[in-house]
Nucleic acid binder design. Structure first.
Length: 256
DNA sequence: ATGGCTTCTCGTAGAAGA
């Protein structure tokens, strides 16, 4: 099976790209989307189902919003973190083909001196606590999405320039490592990868052309899945599209 | 690249993203 994640930065704008991308990947089992930026009553459910997919979603106007599109039924859907009261729609979890898939749009944090930074850290703490229970219930678990954390300096185009900034700060990275400590594996690092491999590039300053990016979108796998993972790739081609999202999809292949 | 795009909105400027 293949599990993918993609921050589409508005599904309204990106729906045609998403459907085209899925059509070109018949092996793809489930795709988690972030930043759909739409309320549920305007979500393009009918279009996605007409294309032959199952879909589940939760969103809000302007910000956040997550969804899951799959070729197999999407079962036992849960929205948001049950242990964290939050009006922001950032989490969708469901079982697809026997795998518990947790799709998350983790907070950005804005900057270290912003109110959004302590929110980010508290949110990540709640996610970690939630994952402990989920991993106990679901041995086959994938945590996918936009983490808004570049785990290591090699995930940053210019570590010196980014030092101490949000997305790379030690408290954020420590929380990423705590997720790893729960028994999850960063599937991307199971394999030899090109240097300077990123999943997000700034729209400004020719970020993509200069490869001035960050690797902040991840597919983390529990041990039974990591053992059977045969590939994890970032699809840079999607970032070359007309009107692209600033994020590229990440796809993990698991021999299940 | 020092914030230079892109998206959104009770819109036409400002906030937010990362």
């Amino acid at each position: 099976m293949q599990i993918a994640t993609w921050n589409v930065n508005s599904l309204k704008v990106r729906l045609p790209q998403v459907l085209e991308w899925l059509a070109a990947r018949p092996e793809l089992t489930v795709l988690a989307l972030q930043e759909t930026k739409m309320e549920d009553h305007v979500f393009p459910k009918a279009e996605i189902e007409a294309a032959g997919f199952h879909v589940a979603f939760v969103g809000q106007k302007t910000y956040n919003g997550v969804a899951m599109i799959a070729r197999a039924p999407i079962e036992d859907v849960q929205f948001n973190l049950p242990n964290y009261e939050d009006p922001q729609k950032r989490v969708i979890a469901a079982t697809v083909s026997g795998v518990r898939v947790v799709g998350a749009y983790m907070p950005n944090g804005q900057s270290l001196d912003s109110d959004k930074y302590p929110y980010k850290l508290a949110w990540l703490d709640a996610m970690i606590e939630y994952l402990q229970g989920e991993l106990a219930r679901h041995p086959r678990l994938a945590l996918v999405g936009d983490y808004n954390i570049a785990p290591e300096d090699r995930d940053v185009h210019d570590p010196k320039a980014w030092e101490g900034q949000v997305l790379v700060s030690p408290p954020e990275r420590e929380r990423f490592q705590r997720m790893i400590g729960l028994g999850l594996t960063d599937s991307f690092r199971l394999f030899e990868q090109a240097e300077k491999a990123f999943s997000w590039w700034d729209y400004r300053a020719m970020g993509f052309r200069r490869n001035a990016g960050l690797r902040i979108d991840h597919v983390l796998l529990s041990a039974p899945l990591a053992e059977k993972c045969t590939a994890c790739v970032i699809d840079r081609e999607a970032r070359k599209a007309e009107r692209p999202s600033d994020h590229a999809p990440v796809v993990a292949t698991i021999a299940l």
